[in-house]
Simulated scan of single mutants.
Amino acid sequence: MADPVTITLVAKAAIMAAADKRTWKAVGVLIAAILTPFILIIVMISSLLSGTANHNNAAVQLSFHDGVISGQVPEDYREYIEDMRKSFSKLDVIIAEITLMIEDGSLDPVQVKAIFYSLYFGAESLRGIDYQSFTECFVRYEERTHTWSDEDGVEHEESYTAAVPLTSLPVIYRNLESTLGRRISYENQANASEIYYRALYGTGAAGEGDRFDQWSDWLPEQFVNPVYDLAVGETGSQAVQLALSRLGDPYSQELRGRAGYTDCSYLVQWIYRQLKVNLPGTAAEQGKYCVNNGLTVSKADLAPGDLVFWSHKVNGRYLNITHVGIYAGNGKVVDASSSRGRVVYRDLFDADKQVLYARPYGSKTAQ
């Protein structure tokens, strides 16, 4: 049984979270779970009080990998997991049928199920879902021909239909929106990525990075709020020198700040911390901070030391920002690159993915 401290924390979390109707349901489930084992309570808190941003890893594992559902799990939550298992079984049958039509590549069943989970987990009813049409959103069909020889050596030509797995998530989501007749929000898409990683690896998806192959044709929404005429100072030059001092340092989100490891946002935070400018710890929050404090500039006004923000995928964060680097002047940037595994000095890249530019040490002089 949970100790008094745990019960107090759960009660406080429930009170703070009870701001909307959706969370009231979560509070009810938490109250029912008070007497369950301590680990189960923590799992429920991480899922139910944070909406769809943080997923219940236990529910994902049970849905994707079976296992015994504890008798302590609330009844409605048990039903959601069982509904997913039944749906996944139907999807498996269709995936197997489509796989027989694939000649090159393969259909990723975890991806299909992760997106289905993000759209339907917790739904009141799964009746009427067209599982065939849903799964076919992940492939395209081609008419092909092949020749064969009969016993007399006579060649014959036959036409057949081949399934080609899609590798672009934006294309898949466009197919799904057309098929389902609904908009799939950025939050849904971010949740699907999170679920995919939790199902495969038991951990959350990477929120930062400079390259995400499945989102190669992702066209982010550009920042349209006003930019400011900010004075250029020596601080920017100092920021570049500090950035260059970290060239070659190894990249790691998990180990950032230890033994020389860094990721893109930690590099920026570390640089400006030396210059007495305190920035948040993620690229998205750094972008949000600059917007909220009137520190945004135009691309045409970029100066050494300015920040460049990219959106390479849907991650559910501010402006879907996934990467940040330090502009070094002359069309160059210094950034901690996940794709290259280290801090690099390179050309300013992916112009179509740049969503924001900022001067974090600036002060507004005109608008």
Rank of each mutant, 00 (worst) to 15 (best):
I69C: 14
W310E: 10
D152G: 01
R340A: 09
R273Q: 05
M101F: 02
D229C: 15
L49R: 01
P280F: 01
L166S: 00
V334H: 13
H55K: 02
V68A: 14
T52C: 09
A192I: 11
V291S: 02
R182S: 12
L9N: 03
L275V: 07
V5T: 14
G153N: 08
K299F: 07
S237I: 15
T282Y: 06
L295D: 02
S237M: 07
Y131G: 05
R183Q: 06
P280N: 03
G51L: 00
D301E: 15
V277R: 02
T161H: 01
E187W: 00
H65T: 07
G202M: 06
F223M: 15
A351I: 04
L275R: 07
K113F: 02
T179N: 10
A192Y: 04
Y228T: 04
H65S: 09
A33P: 01
I98V: 15
L35R: 08
L255P: 01
L30W: 14
S46P: 00
Y228R: 04
Q222N: 05
A26F: 07
S339C: 06
A283S: 11
I321S: 08
M1T: 04
G341L: 08
I39F: 10
V10C: 11
D306N: 10
S298L: 05
T179R: 04
G207W: 08
I184G: 00
Q61M: 09
A17R: 07
Y318N: 07
F134T: 00
A32V: 05
R258L: 06
F138N: 07
D352W: 00
L100D: 13
T179W: 00
I271F: 07
V277F: 12
I41G: 01
D350C: 09
L107K: 05
W24V: 06
G71T: 02
V43C: 12
V240A: 15
G305K: 09
V68S: 05
Y160M: 12
G67H: 09
A206R: 12
R359S: 04
F88T: 10
